[in-house]
């Protein structure tokens, strides 16, 4: 009979967290910004079919980074949960808080259960209210931690760089166009230096995935995707654009080299 190696719980959790963080850091960032009429999501995503930002319910949207198959499962679960609650009770009874709690429980359980690998995802759940003060943005990490974000938040690959830029340039109650400019410029940043680095890029409108929860929409469903044509009109002339470096574009962020997988001490 072989003796299992002893691994301290601290080490076990740290290994799992490192594993998840590594997976998440591979992807490109998603930024979320509050503006005068609601909440704006922006990310660099050349695919028009595989979305990082999606609608969950009337006032609730979802954004994620990390492994596509994992956050897609969570998104579908969220849509089902929201639709079922709205059908059983009323549309007003579907809240972002309830959804964030369900996600937190799910991610937390998966993270701390020994048998499964942790999800390599991070999620935003945002709900738009009747006024900017009522807007809510929740950030959920791979371990099921929930944080309440205000004004702006970033997750994914170069989140520090993007967040630094947003911190310096964010203004409250900005117009849609202003908020979009700030978010897109932040996503194209390459260094934390306030003056920008040599590698700063102007991301082409076709490579942007942008969506808003717009409280001024007359329909009950406040979610709206901004298509490239609309983005170009809003962004105006920004000079020559640079698509993402081909090697990053060619490697889907959700693909993980199997050799990168750490050996799971618990399964030995």
């Amino acid at each position: 009979m072989s003796m299992p190696f002893y691994v301290s719980p601290e080490q076990l959790m740290k290994d799992r967290a490192d594993f998840a963080r590594k997976g998440i850091a591979r992807g490109r960032s998603v930024a979320v910004i509050q503006y005068a009429d609601g909440v704006l999501f922006a990310s660099e995503n050349p695919s028009q079919a595989l979305h990082k930002v999606s609608e969950i319910y009337d006032r609730i949207a979802f954004a994620a980074v990390g492994r596509y198959n994992e956050f897609e499962n969570l998104r579908i679960a969220g849509v089902r949960l929201a639709d079922m609650r709205g059908y059983a009770y009323d549309r007003r009874d579907v809240t972002g808080r309830g959804l964030a709690n369900a996600y937190a429980q799910t991610l937390g359980t998966i993270f701390s259960s020994g048998g499964e690998k942790p999800y390599e995802v991070e999620i935003f759940v945002a709900e738009v209210g009747d006024s900017p003060a009522d807007d809510q943005i929740y950030r959920l990490t791979y371990q099921g931690q929930v944080t309440d974000e205000h004004q702006y938040a970033v997750m994914g690959g170069a989140d520090e760089v993007v967040a630094t830029y947003l911190k310096e340039h964010y203004t409250e109650n900005a117009s849609l166009s202003d908020a979009l400019h700030v978010a897109v410029a932040a996503l194209g940043r390459s260094s934390e230096d306030g003056n920008g680095g040599a590698g700063d890029r102007v991301i082409p409108a076709g490579d942007l995935e942008v969506a808003v929860l717009d409280r001024t929409r007359t329909q009950p469903r406040k979610f709206l995707r901004l298509m490239p044509a609309r983005l170009e009109a809003l962004l105006g002339d920004r000079g020559p654009t640079t698509p993402a470096a081909p090697e990053t574009a060619a490697t889907p962020e959700s693909e993980i080299d199997p050799t990168d997988l750490p050996e799971d001490p618990a399964s030995e």
Binding site: E72, I76, A77, L81, A102, Q105, T106, T109
Partner: peptide, 10 residues
């Protein structure tokens, strides 16, 4: 306490 498996089933 996670969401039931059927919610996540594609």
């Amino acid at each position: 306490s996670r969401l039931p498996a059927s919610y996540m089933m594609p």
